[in-house]
Amino acid sequence: MSLVGKKAPLFTAPAVINGEEIVEDFSLEQYIGKNEVIFFFYPKDFTFVCPTEILAFQEKLAEFEKRGVAVVGASTDTEETHLAWLCTPKNQGGIEGVTYPIVADTSKVIASNYGVLAGDWDYDEEGRLSFTGLPIAYRGSFLIDKEGTVRHETINDLPLGRNIDEMIRLVDALQYVEKHGEVCPANWEEGKEAMQATKEGVASYLASH
């Protein structure tokens, strides 16, 4: 079930911040009323597609921050594994230099609450609890507004990497809508014309394009 239009599930969990410090009580609550948040899940530390995404978010971090947006990553690995990966140089498959928080969802509760866990718990015929599927997160991405409401989500299968520029475009669209009260048509980008959410507004936009 989609979380769009609903409050983002809050949590308190360990995380690595600033690429070097483990905190035990990281929470998204610190951003409510202050910042929009890009909260994204990735499958596993020390893998192949994941570092390309994590480093791509870092490369664009200044673009998010100048828009007042916080970036937070998460996987089902431990905080110690996160820290080890963060301390590993890029040329050795690491993500050294990443400064935004990376959450450790070892219980898999956060991934489950966000609907991105690539498997589920079930009981077998003998009544024993088991897990079917993969106990890791899909590549879920969530744009959360300042009120803590999810405004956009995408969930990619494990081999499919994300487009970080598209996340920036969505932030621009959300902030434009909230500032101007207009709506953003297909392929809208910052600097392009938006339109009024009325029949007349749509007709005028279509006539001019």
Rank of each mutant, 00 (worst) to 15 (best):
residue 146 K to D: 06
residue 174 L to A: 04
residue 14 P to D: 07
residue 38 I to W: 03
residue 102 I to S: 02
residue 137 A to S: 13
residue 52 T to K: 12
residue 36 E to Y: 07
residue 85 W to K: 06
residue 161 G to T: 11
residue 111 A to Q: 08
residue 7 K to L: 13
residue 16 V to N: 02
residue 203 A to P: 12
residue 71 V to P: 02
residue 147 E to D: 14
residue 162 R to A: 08
residue 181 G to W: 04
residue 139 R to W: 09
residue 141 S to I: 09
residue 2 S to Y: 10
residue 37 V to W: 00
residue 41 F to V: 00
residue 46 F to L: 09
residue 16 V to L: 06
residue 152 H to Y: 14
residue 158 L to K: 07
residue 59 E to P: 12
residue 137 A to Y: 02
residue 11 F to R: 06
residue 189 E to N: 12
residue 48 F to T: 09
residue 49 V to I: 13
residue 207 A to T: 13
residue 208 S to V: 01
residue 56 A to S: 14
residue 18 N to I: 01
residue 184 C to I: 05
residue 173 A to L: 03
residue 17 I to N: 04
residue 184 C to T: 13
residue 6 K to D: 11
residue 59 E to R: 14
residue 44 K to S: 15
residue 147 E to G: 12
residue 170 L to T: 06
residue 186 A to P: 07
residue 19 G to S: 07
residue 49 V to G: 10
residue 44 K to Y: 15
residue 150 V to Y: 03
residue 129 L to N: 00
residue 53 E to I: 08
residue 126 E to Y: 04
residue 82 H to D: 08
residue 144 I to H: 04
residue 117 L to Y: 01
residue 104 A to C: 09
residue 153 E to V: 11
residue 48 F to W: 10
residue 99 T to G: 13
residue 111 A to R: 01
residue 34 K to N: 07
residue 187 N to L: 12
residue 128 R to F: 11
residue 93 G to M: 03
residue 12 T to G: 09
residue 132 T to H: 13
residue 56 A to K: 10
residue 172 D to R: 06
residue 9 P to N: 09
residue 208 S to I: 00
residue 170 L to I: 13
residue 82 H to G: 07
residue 7 K to Y: 10
residue 60 K to G: 03
residue 43 P to M: 08
residue 161 G to W: 07
residue 87 C to P: 00
residue 142 F to V: 03
residue 44 K to N: 15
residue 150 V to F: 04
residue 60 K to I: 02
residue 102 I to E: 01
residue 205 Y to A: 02
residue 43 P to E: 06
residue 204 S to E: 15
residue 164 I to F: 04
residue 140 G to Q: 08
residue 93 G to L: 01
residue 144 I to S: 06
residue 131 F to M: 07
residue 54 I to M: 05
residue 28 L to N: 06
residue 71 V to S: 05
residue 156 N to C: 12
residue 63 E to F: 11
residue 43 P to C: 10
residue 10 L to K: 00
residue 12 T to K: 12
residue 171 V to C: 06
residue 208 S to Y: 08
residue 30 Q to C: 11
residue 30 Q to D: 04
residue 188 W to H: 03
residue 192 K to W: 05
residue 54 I to S: 03
residue 93 G to P: 02
residue 72 V to H: 00
residue 127 G to C: 10
